[in-house]
Simulated scan of single mutants.
Amino acid sequence: MAEQQPLFDAAKYKNTQREQWNKDGSAWRRWTPTLELWYGDVTRQMLAAAHVQSGQRILDVAAGAGEPSVSAAERVGPSGYVLATDISEGIVELARQVACERGLHQIETRAMDGEKLDLPDASFDAVLCRFGLMYMPHPVNALSEWRRALKPGGWAAVAVFSMPERNGWGALPASIIRQRAQLPPPVPGQPGPFSLGGVGVLEELFRQAGFANPQVRTVQVPHRAASAADYVRVAREAFGGFNAMMANLSLEERESVWNEVENSMHRFESSTGFEVPGECHVASAAK
């Protein structure tokens, strides 16, 4: 008899995600200027794909430490409204602080599960989710909830990373960490950074959630830094998932792993600096 694969525990996974971002959210905020150099174009393309305009009501799911909420708030202006939500109470508080520092009083923040919105029907002109949907155990449920919250004619726009072979910034460190930490392969249904990057995956999810004619475009997101060492410094602080994969290793073993990661990333250095490939998909559809 074949050995039965373990089932994916969605509730446990969500609790782990909440705890991870409560812990690592401050690092994500600290590195925001660098992260926006990498992902700012993705945000702009999402806002355009969702037809975000002055005076609108925008919902940002998995908003993290404040993007794309801040960019959306600047576009809708003082007469508009942006609700920034995230499963992590700690990182939502950071987003609130960012909004206050920017004087963006049209931003409200609330801790909320993106798969189960505590929001009325037909209450938003657009829903945004940058690099969050791929971490949700039930993406069709999430998209269905977002569609419910949209006004008729409103748009949803999401960004996810594409395939691992096109995202060396994450796939290479993850491969090394998985091997060194002796982690088993992901179980069926397990979310992750590249779980929705396959051809046609996003289109099918949108259709299953009730959206018609989803549009998907590919965006290059090269991760640039002065050196491999500088890149690894960002990765080990801001990308909490890497550290979570090493939770059972000693401090000495973790340092050894990070040294191996840095050595592996030297291949992306040149006379002009460091650049490792990255690619994502921006998908959008109207209700």
Rank of each mutant, 00 (worst) to 15 (best):
L249N: 02
G241W: 07
F242A: 12
R233C: 12
F242K: 08
A229G: 03
S256G: 13
V261H: 09
E255R: 09
F242E: 05
M246L: 15
S227G: 00
N243L: 09
A228D: 01
E260V: 15
F239T: 00
F242R: 07
G240K: 03
E260M: 13
A244M: 10
A244L: 12
N248K: 15
M246Y: 07
S227M: 01
E255P: 08
R233N: 15
S250Y: 06
N259C: 10
R233S: 15
A228T: 00
A229F: 00
L251K: 14
A228H: 01
A228W: 00
R233P: 05
Y231R: 03
S250A: 04
N243T: 11
V261I: 06
A229R: 01
G240N: 03
N259D: 14
A238I: 06
N259I: 07
A238E: 04
V257Q: 02
E252I: 08
E253N: 09
E252D: 12
E252N: 08
A228V: 02
E252W: 10
E253K: 12
N259K: 10
L251H: 09
R254G: 02
V232Y: 03
L249I: 01
R236H: 05
D230A: 02
A226G: 15
E253L: 10
A244Q: 12
F242C: 08
L249Y: 04
A244Y: 08
M245A: 10
V234F: 04
N259E: 11
M245F: 07
W258R: 05
A238V: 08
R233G: 11
A226N: 13
E252G: 07
V257W: 01
W258Y: 12
L251C: 14
V232S: 02
Y231Q: 08
M246I: 08
D230R: 01
A235C: 11
Y231P: 02
S250E: 04
N259L: 15
L251D: 15
G240R: 01
R254P: 01
A228L: 03
G240T: 06
R254M: 13
A238M: 07
V234E: 13
M245P: 07
A229C: 00
N248R: 14
E260L: 15
F239D: 03
G241A: 09
R236T: 02
V232N: 05
M246E: 06
A244T: 10
S250N: 12
A235G: 08
S227H: 00
A226F: 08
A226C: 10
A226I: 05
E237F: 12
G241T: 05
V232F: 08
F242G: 05
F239E: 01
F239H: 06
N259T: 11
A247S: 15
M245D: 14
